[in-house]
Design a protein around this nucleic acid. Structure first.
Lengths: 338, 338
DNA sequence: CATTTCTCTGGGAACGTTCGCGGGAACGTT
DNA sequence: AACGTTCCCGCGAACGTTCCCAGAGAAATG
């Protein structure tokens, strides 16, 4: 693609490049007349500014990186929509890298972002423990970073989250209030902080209603659909009664639900299913899932706003934004109280 | 972020910037000794090359744009993984824009990509008719483009697709062979060429077995989950018997399936469901969907390879790659012949 | 030993922009 | 009439690289 530059316009009008630049940049040191002449010529010649050159000047790339743990579910993409809705209008590019739930790959992605010289990074972690030194190094190198959804522990950074503990607590509370007593839990991996928090919410909610916490009702597993399937099998093999399953994510819940149905269990009559997420998955399965619906688009939006803040002023204090999330009672737990 | 430049290395070693550049760029006009010295100093000082500067020189941005019609389903993201697997190792950034099935937004996205000065664009269209003039203009301006999945009509461009007609034909053929006779079709929008092709495959397959084509068994609709729900309703309201539904996409199929089940129909005993896609959605629903499984990752990979070809030599002839797709018979049509 | 070739290095222009500086013209103020 | 201001505009440096050109010295050739 051949591009016409500011210099071409200057030649065309026999004026200097500086004046052209000033006209285009809306500098005040220019006569209205000449400015109009330049703009006219610009459209006539089909001029498109070359951001690369300007960025070189400013030492920016106008690019920010997003690192996501997985890209199979719609989760990431909805958040990314939110991010882009803020950044694209500002002329900032967004590049995405996926870690496949692998801390090693996450590290690679961080390095790649650095190589690409992004102006900042938005991160959804694989593990809240991994790559800590790298994040410390980046922080020291003054790389603007904002974490969202899955955040690190003991690192003073900007972040945007929902209150996993509280929301889980409320969800379990409502399940109990609607008559469910034997609530099993499919727990996520240990190294995801949200998993720890949701587990805590689950336990405390049981305690509030004086329901016993029973180890046999808890299964810890991974993040995939098949992990959900296996979790259901494991739960059944323990020969302990349960009338509800609360799963760490949509995907796990759906895996478990499908397995149970395959084995002839009626949902929600014999077993109710609830989860925590906010993707469309929870409404395209049958029956629709009771879930804590996180505001994903909004989460992306605020993360993007935070990173802009951070880029503009690295010395500003880190901010932690907690978003609200709605509890949606749906057919999978057959609650009357929608 | 303060960055170490090539000049810093030059000062540090009291040599010229040119030599440093040569050392880093693996130029042959340099003594092995000095080259090693430079590399050593580079790692010592923590030098990271600034791609922006180099790109300015070369007139490239090392960025390619991807325009997708929608981002709710995993469809797009799986293809994007394939694209990134080729481009990221080459140091090429990938930016993504979503058109929300809206041709106007698609046009906006094209303009944005141009503003960002991407080196090339990978496109999955909203409509095969829309924005034609814009694509012609871009082509004339020598913007490298590759279309995939949903392609334009009557435009000489590089593209990567699967054979919608043939694969649909084979799928319907197998459904008929497994005993299904009254196959309904949920058709996609008119302005998506794949929809037209799949419809054609459906019709011709019926014809091959001397089964009557019945208008009442075809519903044309949109692309969303709810469109699938509505299509099922419409089909039922026509009071015509059918033992199978073949839907344009996974999402439509799932919408219809859930609606039917809600109304008490047994899947697959009373109605079988089949679709065309290749996302994980077809295997996380219950029962799992019979479907034409497109090789999405591979599609992304080849699209990326084609765009590289095009960027390196715009004069090379446009290529059209047709990928194979597997027909997966699953529980939703209860076929014995998995 | 003289000449050519080769190897390596430094200088400086170029990529497309922005911006500080200086200066000329026009204007207003004493 | 002399001076200070303001308004515009051009010049040139700068951002971090690459690369062409020239040249110094070494090596090879006669």
């Amino acid at each position: 693609m051949k591009h016409i530059t500011i210099k071409d316009i200057a030649n065309y009008l026999s004026i200097s490049v500086s004046t052209v630049s000033r006209a285009l940049i809306d500098d005040k040191n220019i006569r209205r007349e000449t400015k109009e002449k330049v703009l006219e010529a610009a459209t006539l010649l089909g001029y498109r500014p070359n951001p690369v050159a300007a960025n070189l000047k400013y030492g920016r790339t106008n690019t920010i990186g997003v690192i996501i743990p997985e890209g199979i579910t719609p989760f990431a993409l909805q958040i990314i929509s939110g991010i882009q809705s803020v950044l694209y209008p500002k002329g900032i590019k967004v590049i995405i890298a996926e870690s496949s739930e692998d801390a090693g790959k996450e590290l690679e992605n961080l390095r790649m972002m650095e190589r690409f010289m992004v102006d900042g990074i938005l991160i959804n972690l694989c593990s809240y423990k991994a790559n800590k030194e790298e994040y410390l190094r980046l922080r020291k190198a003054e790389m603007p970073m904002v974490f969202y959804d899955r955040i690190p522990h003991g690192l003073d950074v900007s972040q945007v989250i929902v209150d996993d503990y509280k929301k889980t607590f409320f969800l379990i509370e409502r399940l109990i209030r609607s008559g469910r007593r034997q609530i099993a839990h499919i727990q996520g991996p240990d190294d995801i902080y949200n998993s720890v928090e949701r587990f805590r919410g689950y336990k405390d909610a049981l305690a509030k209603f004086n329901l016993p916490f029973r180890e046999e009702l808890v299964v810890q597993t991974g993040m995939t659909f098949n992990d959900g399937v296996r979790a259901a099998d494991l739960l059944l093999s323990r020969q302990v009664e349960f009338d509800t399953i609360f799963a760490f994510t949509d995907v796990l819940a759906i895996g478990a639900m499908n397995r149970l149905r395959e084995l002839g269990k009626k949902i929600p009559e014999e077993v109710g299913i609830a989860s925590f997420s906010g993707t469309e998955l929870s409404t395209i399965v049958y029956p629709q899932l009771t879930t804590v619906e996180q505001p994903l688009f909004e989460m992306g939006r605020t993360a993007a706003l935070l990173i802009l803040e951070r880029i503009n002023d690295f010395t500003s204090p880190c901010r932690s934004v907690v978003l609200d999330a709605a509890i949606k009672m749906r057919a999978s737990t057959d609650s009357k109280e929608c």
